[in-house]
């Protein structure tokens, strides 16, 4: 990997880590969402350093363009209550959770790094290699893999999107008023659906 590639990786990695920490530590969800946006964009850099050009594009389009926007939309909809109040409860379990998660992750990371030696180095395209080698990560090659090789799961994802849409509608369409939690039977009819 050349120097610019290395630079790209380290800078993107640093930004990705920083913004990820930012996302999970911000009190204001809006700021967290912006931080998430930065995180997602920084991952594009990682993808580019791995020669996954198409994926980097999709990442911007879908994640930055759709998912984060959806988040921001919902945060706006909910308004200022979206801010987390200081919750006095369960500090101990939270710290435990954080320590546990970080510990297990570092063990995971350490193990994975240690096994670096066993893995192959990044294959470099030998000079004068065929088009296939040069095509790695390109639109044509990935597209062929995606739409031909993985046609079946691709079609299945359409069902998944349908179920997500219909499910989201079923959950959130129209106005709802709460019934008392004590009287579990939904005695009042559903709000205007």
């Amino acid at each position: 990997m050349n120097t610019s590639g290395l630079m790209l990786f380290w800078v993107s990695a640093a930004v990705a880590l920083g913004s990820a920490v930012g996302t999970i530590s911000m009190r204001n969800p809006l700021r967290a969402a912006v931080s998430l946006l930065i995180h997602i964009l920084s991952l594009c850099g990682i993808y580019l350093s791995l020669k996954a050009h198409l994926l980097a594009t999709i990442q911007v389009l879908v994640y930055a363009g759709a998912v984060v926007v959806l988040f921001i939309f919902v945060i706006m909809l909910i308004g200022p209550t979206a801010n987390e109040q200081r919750a006095p409860r369960a500090v101990g379990t939270r710290i435990l959770g954080a320590v546990g998660a970080l510990l297990s992750t570092s063990v995971l990371a350490f193990t994975l790094v240690r096994h670096d030696a066993q893995l192959l180095p990044i294959p470099q395209c030998p000079p004068g290699a065929g088009a296939e080698c040069g095509q790695f990560g390109g639109v044509t090659a990935v597209g062929a893999e995606l739409y031909l090789g993985s046609m079946v799961p691709f079609e299945l994802v359409s069902i998944l999107l349908t179920v997500a849409i219909v499910g989201a509608i079923a959950v959130a369409k129209g106005k709802t008023t709460a019934t008392s939690p004590k009287n579990e039977g939904p005695t009042t009819p559903e709000g205007a659906a």
């Binding site: 799961p153 299945l156 069902i159 998944l160 499910g167 709802t176 709460a178 019934t179 579990e184």
Partner: peptide
């Protein structure tokens, strides 16, 4: 994909009685 299709469906079914907290 199958797992997520099933799960997303079941998540929304679980929330289907949306008047009930």
């Amino acid at each position: 994909v199958g797992l997520e299709t099933m799960s997303l469906g079941v998540y929304s079914l679980a929330a289907f009685r949306r008047t009930s907290p």
